[in-house]
Design a protein around this nucleic acid. Structure first.
Lengths: 218, 218
DNA sequence: AAGTTCCTTTTGAGTAATCAAAAGTATAAT
DNA sequence: ATTATACTTTTGATTACTCAAAAGGAACTT
């Protein structure tokens, strides 16, 4: 039986490495799923027995094709639900992540496909995260991390890689909404910061935050 | 912690006796929740310790005010979700019950209140079952069981008390949809059946089925 | 090569739920 | 008043998780 706990572990593995190339450390998985390393080891064993992951002790773990397929559909459900909550129910994009964490395990395929149709088969959720299609394929976009942009670049915000409600509130107040057109006014590796103009707003971000924002060149 | 299993037991108790007057037998509860009597006994103990039910061994169990309050909100979530699935996502009314069984434990208050508003604060779900309001009060309607109607009565279908997908499909095909205007053409206690006219359709029902349909006099 | 550190795995124990089957209780029937 | 029946409760075991803490393995430093 695929419990919702199992779905959470699979999803975590997928999000830690969407391409399925790396080996994931037990501790990394434990951190991502908010359990102790011992719990992660135990679950990895269960997943390996079910053929959902490959595991070599003290080396690392990796999704199998079956495991990846399940994981990608959990992510699809999560992201469609998020978009649905924002677009149809009018919820705040900062609140919907936690809500979707629960719903992703409860909604059926039928409901997801109907939401998908109602939303016009979207390719990205309210944070700009790509929505896998019904066959489990991820749409490809060529995005750049904001931290990699240079002075004078004109770009638009395409993805905000941070589920923290407080950060999202800050982003919103700074005019860093999805699709916002911004100009890089200065960048300093030494000061570890980047300053940009977004409409009326002048915002300075640390590079650690800036690398969680992805942009599209105009 | 109120687990979704606890919610299911509370909901079952509520549905077995919405007014909270009767004492419910362990076996009845076990049947309603699809567990063995032993499991029900164990859970009753847990619920009693949490102050959600009153229990006297070998006598019966009853919701406390706290328990009833939780239960009524589970029912509210269930029925709003059902209506939402039919009205907004266009699903078949026969399919939505099982879907809602899962979602009732996963949707937050916030989502429910938004769905409620989107639906225009409805008072009944797709089966005609009353939707408790946000304070937990059930709307009152004076309905009659179809089985209690007499020859010549003109009534309209107001509630279908049966969650079985097959029965609902049959009802739909027989023109027994919510709001349908029907005329009782004959009734026989001996034959245990009632015959009615619904538009073009002439339908004969056993009284056992007929008492699961409630109607409103015109 | 030995030691230290960091990470992973194992072990033992707990919680929340389940079932099957044994034991107990209440009611109704003789 | 005893017995039969029908239901309820208890008991013991199982599953799917969880954690804390002990034990083990890999790799880097000296």
């Amino acid at each position: 039986m695929i419990t919702s706990t199992v779905e959470d572990y699979l999803k975590a593995l997928f999000l830690l490495d969407p391409n399925g190339k790396k080996r994931i450390a037990t501790g990394e998985l434990a951190k991502a799923t908010n359990v102790t390393p011992g719990s992660a080891t135990a679950m990895i064993k269960t997943l390996a027995e079910a053929g959902l992951v490959r595991h070599r002790p003290h080396y690392g773990v990796q999704l199998t094709t079956t495991g990846r397929n399940l994981a990608v559909h959990v992510v699809r459900r999560h992201r469609i639900v998020e978009l649905f909550l924002v677009k149809i129910l009018g919820m705040d994009w900062g609140e919907v992540h936690n809500e979707a964490e629960k719903l992703e395990h409860a909604v059926s395929n039928e409901v997801i496909e109907r939401m998908d149709a109602l939303l016009g088969h979207p390719t990205a959720d309210p944070h700009g995260d790509p929505i896998p299609n019904a066959s489990g394929e991820l749409p490809r976009r060529s995005l750049t991390q904001l931290s990699a942009c240079n002075e004078g670049d004109h770009v638009s915000v395409a993805r905000i890689h941070n589920q923290d409600t407080e950060f999202l509130k800050f982003a919103e107040e700074s005019g860093l909404l999805l699709g916002a057109k911004i100009t890089i006014s200065s960048k300093s590796e030494h000061a570890d910061s980047i300053t940009l103009l977004s409409g009326e707003h002048k915002v300075t971000l640390g590079l650690a935050s800036a690398c969680r924002i992805e942009v599209e060149h105009a």
